[in-house]
Design a binder for these strands. Structure first.
Lengths: 198, 198
DNA sequence: TCCCAAGTGGCACTCCGTGTCACTACTGTG
DNA sequence: CACAGTAGTGACACGGAGTGCCACTTGGGA
């Protein structure tokens, strides 16, 4: 029973990748709509079996989210590095701006993906499960900074609120072709502060 | 082509009610779990056909939400009646407390229902669609008070934040058997204000 | 050359959700 | 007491998502 470091070099090589399937699927979703595209369509277009597709993605709904979970680890690390003399809300705001920064040139693709995610009922619903993980990262950061438990309402509510600010910004960003996502995030946060400070 | 006021008294009488199906279903969900209970199980237990069940509820996921949509109209009316010299956040907070007030004696049932809704992945996901309607009511109220459009980020973000406060309160309420929902809502809102005012 | 580990994909199955359609149980009228 | 009109019911069949099972394929290592 020997342990191999590069386990990937054993056994039959993979016939595809997450990225390849995702790319093919987003193309089909964009052309025919999410509901109208069946898993069989995607598998056929990707040149793999339907059963194989379900080994790469747990569900059809998971496909448009791509490597989101990996991005969360990055967000968590980014928060840990925030200077400790900065207000918590400020550190959060900066990290969230960073997290949502669109890689230069990828603006169009990002818009298409987010329009799909926020505009398709089945995906809106499924996204709630992704958001829960995202909120968890925020709540744990707040809890650590404040010296309270991660399930304390004071930490949990900040996770929910930060998500709300982000989603509000995304919705208005998608509604206006000429809008800048970062500016919308600023505006949303500012509006919430004003609202509560009235 | 005569119009009858009491249209219900025509034709074949209904063989069941939303409430009856819901009650049977919640009982099965509680005993066997949501995923393990099939629509056929519910229909059989309710003494109706499977097809009939789908005429009363659009999906299995919709059953635990019961008459939620009707409650939304009540929330909207409640907000319209709020005194106009009250701060917007205050009017919202009062209305939300009211909306979530548990009918005396129904605390246990409310807890069971919310535990099901917030603790079942499939329902967490589906709930996002209900939340969207709820947020819409809040955003429209804020927009009306502030004289801005309902899709303005300043109104949208308040809808998201109010939902976040409510969900945070529900989560901690469910986690502590001796907690009071109203107090958790107060605590969540207070914590968010403190957080942003830092 | 043979073996083994990991990946693949076909098959059959369950369950959700939907379209169709004949049937049933009422009400009001002549 | 027919009879027509109306609304609700449920059986049947179908398509799509997701799952368990298992034989097959493709490489590397002994």
């Amino acid at each position: 029973m020997v342990r191999h470091e590069r386990g990937e070099m054993f056994g039959r090589p993979r016939s595809t990748t997450h990225e390849s399937i995702e790319s093919v699927a987003l193309d089909l979703f964009g052309r025919n709509g999410f509901e109208q595209t069946t898993v069989d369509d995607i598998a056929a277009a990707a040149g793999i079996g339907r059963r194989t597709l379900f080994r790469y993605f747990a569900s059809k709904n998971d496909i448009p989210w791509g490597r989101f979970s990996e991005g969360l680890a990055e967000l968590a690390r980014r928060l840990e590095e925030a200077p400790r003399d900065e207000p918590v809300w400020q550190a959060l705001h900066d990290a969230i701006l960073d997290f949502n920064a669109v890689p230069a040139g990828g603006e169009d693709q990002h818009r298409r993906r987010m329009r799909l995610l926020l505009g398709t009922p089945a995906l809106q619903a499924h996204s709630a499960l992704m958001y829960a993980e995202w909120r968890g990262v925020i709540a744990r950061f707040v809890a650590e900074r404040r010296g309270i438990a991660a399930d304390d309402v004071r930490a949990v509510v900040v996770g929910h609120a930060a998500l709300g600010v982000s989603l509000a910004a995304y919705e208005t960003w998608l509604a206006h072709d000429d809008a800048d996502l970062g500016e919308q995030l600023d505006a949303a946060l500012g509006a919430l502060r004003d609202h509560l400070a009235e």
